[in-house]
């Protein structure tokens, strides 16, 4: 057990998976000698060599397309998209091939592929280095999509994703990388994909969220604790499959719910969560389901005040929760 940040926890999971199974290899831009832009793959090139930690040509369609073929033929590729914003040149391969392969081949082929992608804003990345991409991919059956936000979960869910026979998009919030620390067991362990986590127990109002927003929600909850408002925070961790039971149980308990996400509000992943609560949790609700999310503007602006305006922050979350409990 050691205290690691999110990035180190992911690095450890990659290392253990590579040590355990020679079919596992890493492919991505600058993942080799440079150790990745964020240094997530640091040390792995030296340890496992250039055949297993591949500095790919600069083309996401190569990275993903080749990985799909390799996964179908029995390999266990872990593909890194340097920034989630750059995944779109590979959108075609992910949606049209990886997600559908089992369905279109009568279960003959499967795609045990993990795609890691740093996403999210709050680091002045501006228009092309800040996006949340989950809504595009959670829309597509056949893919699993996870977004762990603690070092413990990140290691466990990455190992689970590598073991998973289906393609998994593994989203890493880049602001969490060095900021979020926690204790991580040394050994190989997993958390099942599809189970939410109660990040904080509460009785007055529920926040359903994931990614960096989990930490902001907990911060907001602590601000409100002093005002005698008791906030429950549910970290979904896994977006597809979704743990509906944990969501509805929390709604039963608190009767008021805020769905919180960083992506644009309109058509975002949280819209699905809100729809599920409206349908399955209606009789437990004492207030309309609320959503707080990123602005509906084309991209996250660069300028610090505009970036802050885009993002939900702990104080915006606290304000929304105050209004909600007073409904």
């Amino acid at each position: 057990m050691a205290e690691l940040n999110l990035l180190e926890a992911i690095n450890q999971a990659l290392d253990q998976a590579m040590a355990n199974d020679e079919r596992v290899y890493i492919i991505g831009e600058d993942v080799g000698q440079r150790g990745g832009v964020f240094r997530v793959t640091d040390g792995l090139h030296a340890k496992y060599g250039e055949k297993r930690v591949i500095d790919a040509p600069l083309a996401e369609s190569i990275i993903i397309g080749s990985s799909i073929g390799a996964a179908m033929y029995g390999m266990r590729p872990i593909a890194e998209i340097q920034f989630a914003d750059f995944i779109f040149p590979a959108f075609n391969q992910i949606i049209s091939e990886a997600a559908r392969m089992r369905y279109r081949s009568n279960n003959t082929w499967e795609v045990p592929l993990v795609i890691r992608a740093p996403y999210g804003g709050g680091i002045h990345g501006a228009l092309y280095h800040s996006q949340s991409i989950e809504a595009f991919f959670t829309h597509i059956p056949g893919l699993k999509v996870v977004a762990p936000s603690t070092p413990y979960d990140a290691k466990a869910m990455l190992l689970a994703a590598i073991d998973d026979p289906d393609p998994v998009l593994f989203l890493e919030h880049k602001k969490c990388y060095r900021l979020i620390k926690g204790y991580v067991p040394d050994e190989h362990y997993t958390v099942p994909i599809g189970k939410a986590d109660i990040a904080r127990e509460g009785s007055d109002v529920s926040v359903i969220t994931y990614g960096m927003m989990r930490h902001y929600a907990v911060e907001a909850a602590e601000m409100l604790a002093g005002e005698d408002i008791n906030v429950e925070v549910v970290d979904l961790r896994s977006l597809v499959p979704l743990d509906r039971e944990t969501i509805i149980n929390s709604v039963k308990k608190t009767s008021k719910v805020l769905v919180l996400y960083e992506d644009n509000l309109f058509g975002g992943y949280g819209a699905e969560v809100a729809a599920i609560i409206a349908q399955d949790g209606f009789e437990y609700l004492d207030a309309p389901v609320q959503r707080l999310a990123g602005l509906d503007i084309p991209a996250m602006p660069y300028s610090t005040p505009l970036e802050n305006e885009f993002l939900p922050t702990p104080s915006k979350i606290a304000d929304t929760l105050r209004d909600l409990v007073n409904y």
Partner: peptide
């Protein structure tokens, strides 16, 4: 990131542009 910037601070380093100079800009993808 200031309002007097070529993109009013919205774009930053990678997206300089100026139509009057037929400079269609930097693209980050």
């Amino acid at each position: 990131g200031r309002s007097t910037g070529t993109g009013k601070g919205k774009g930053g380093s990678m997206h300089f542009a100026d139509k009057n100079k037929n400079f269609w800009g930097g693209y980050a993808i």
